[in-house]
Nucleic acid binder design. Structure first.
Lengths: 130, 130
DNA sequence: TATAGGCTCTCCAGTAACTGGAAGGTCAAG
DNA sequence: CTTGACCTTCCAGTTACTGGAGAGCCTATA
């Protein structure tokens, strides 16, 4: 199938699929005589895999790593678990930061009257060195 | 004061302070004869303000906007509150996404034995189209 | 006075992961 | 035979810096 159909099946923009081919992440199965990229079901499956992994916040480099494990049927599940666990910890870390951010900003927002007058606790809050 | 001192007081890398000057976000108060950027307390205060706002996840464009409100002593607090509230909603949205991500990935991780064998629910989980 | 070091300057390139657009080739339908 | 949708490559731009080269400046010490 041609790139647009592959992209649609994978749930990715055509540009992105082309980009993944360019950086050697997911190569098309073949090229047509006229130079069109030709994708098979296997390549589409890899594209889906990448899309999902990206949605989980794995970087392209990590995706490359995971894809290597994906295609390697002799890998140990421990290898995969290690990467996923690391990513899980990163997510948890990010959650904590976001929570802190949220609380602090929410505090500023609720303490601001939001009227016509210029005094604003948000502005003065941001101006604190901390 | 020279750039390194200003940067230290603001808690920012020198390169970043120079960058902020380049993009016209926080201009140095002056230039020495030999071309060195010269910062005063006011500029340092703005740098601190920017650092804090950036830490809250405000983009440079939003920082520019906020800085405009920061220096404008006649602004209404409503203007500021609107921007901050928008940002707060973005944070909350991000938190929801992250929570979903976390739960799904945690599920995959706990269902994976993580041993020498190749079967791995993480890999097969990522391969699901969803 | 020479020099060594630690600043500072500008400019260029690279990062991550695309996205948009231009210029041009291909293909099927009408 | 032409139209329009699709495909190609290549280049530039995005965000917010960061690193490095090459060169100028400033001060302290030998």
């Amino acid at each position: 199938m041609k790139i647009s159909q592959a992209a649609e099946r994978a749930g990715l923009p055509v540009k992105t699929v082309r980009y993944y081919a360019d950086i050697g992440l997911v190569a098309p199965a073949d090229r047509s005589v006229s130079g069109y990229r030709s994708y098979d079901q296997d390549a589409v499956q890899k594209l889906i895999f990448i899309r999902r992994a990206r949605a989980f916040g794995f970087s392209i480099i990590e995706c490359r790593e995971l894809l290597g494990l994906y295609v390697d049927t002799t890998r140990s599940s421990a290898d995969v678990k290690a990467i996923a666990t690391r990513r899980l910890h990163e997510i948890e870390q990010k959650q904590k930061e976001l929570q802190y951010l949220h609380d602090e900003l929410a505090h500023l927002v609720t303490s601001c009257r939001g009227d016509d007058r210029p005094d604003c606790p948000i502005i003065s809050g941001l101006a604190q060195p901390k």
